[in-house]
Design a protein around this nucleic acid. Structure first.
Ligand code: FES
Ligand code: FES
Lengths: 150, 150
DNA sequence: TTAATACCCTACTAACTTGATAGAGATTAT
DNA sequence: ATAATCTCTATCAAGTTAGTAGGGTATTAA
């Protein structure tokens, strides 16, 4: 019951691009800011590009940028793309992809479906515009106390 | 974001023992009813015994039985025991076990904590008495239509 | 007492997933 | 040209998952 580093990194990368929305950001900049291994992030961004979340520009002054506005991207879309289905499958899916023979009588399944529904609802409602706003507020509050600039 | 077969089997085994509460059930009977590989279930039950969920009786007419009433066992207890923490850790836990350096500013963490809280609440509220009751009702309803007996 | 029954325990393994790293190639601004 | 950047494929060590194998030990019916 966990999200992988890959998924976590993907979310962080997109949040980073949301915060710097409007210009192309180099992989290395994102990697440093978000503390992600450079070469790993390279692969993740390539995958996110295939998924239609980001676009890129090559050569000097190149980098990555969001394919659409932060408001149009949800956590759910990203998680499903890099991690697969969100539902905490018990044996909801059996081998093939269709659900198991006992599904109709399975009371465990009901609980997991309920949980899956909650998670889906949650992550589908959170956009990267929301995350960006919250992130900036948190940082602003910190700056007030610590006198740092980022 | 998934539960393993081991966890699924553990839940099914305990539900089976809850349904047959009062007598000792052989591993093989449980394995057949719940469609679990015998030798795998053997290990799982041994582990559940160490965890204090079940007790056993050896020799002829031996088998496993619940260590306490179905009402006193929750899904959460079992899942945590066989699967570890329920929370969909983002990078909430870093290497050691303490949370990461950026936790205070991390907006992703907030979302995952919320989800983790919901899951924990849910599975901690569902007891095996609840599951047993629902299971028996489902089976009864099926029997009415199909004229089967189990 | 003894044979049958059933749990106890440890070791092993094949396949898969995770979290990367390596390096050559393609593209673009200056 | 050339330096900066993304592109793409391959590889890999470590860990996890889903089992299997096989002998050992306790209990009890007969
Ligand atoms: S969904 Fe298959 S047994 Fe529960
Ligand atoms: S909790 Fe560590 S960066 Fe989010």
């Amino acid at each position: 019951m966990k999200i992988t580093f890959k998924g976590d990194y993907a979310l962080k990368a997109i949040l980073d691009l949301a915060i710097h929305h409007g210009r192309a950001e180099r992989i290395e900049s994102i990697a440093k800011r978000q503390d992600i291994p450079f070469k790993f992030l390279e692969q993740i961004l390539l995958s996110l590009k295939k998924g239609g979340f980001v676009r890129s520009k090559r050569g000097r002054d190149g980098g990555y940028y969001l394919a659409r506005a932060p408001k149009q991207i949800t956590m759910g879309q990203v998680i499903r793309y890099v991690e697969g289905p969100i539902e905490p499958i018990s044996c909801i899916l059996k081998k093939g992809g269709t659900h198991c023979d006992f599904a109709a009588q399975c009371v465990l399944r009901d609980v997991f479906l309920d949980i899956g529904q909650y998670i889906a609802d949650k992550v589908d409602r959170v956009t990267f515009a929301d995350l960006k706003e919250k992130q900036l507020k948190k940082l602003a509050k910190e700056n007030k106390y610590l006198n740092y600039s980022i």
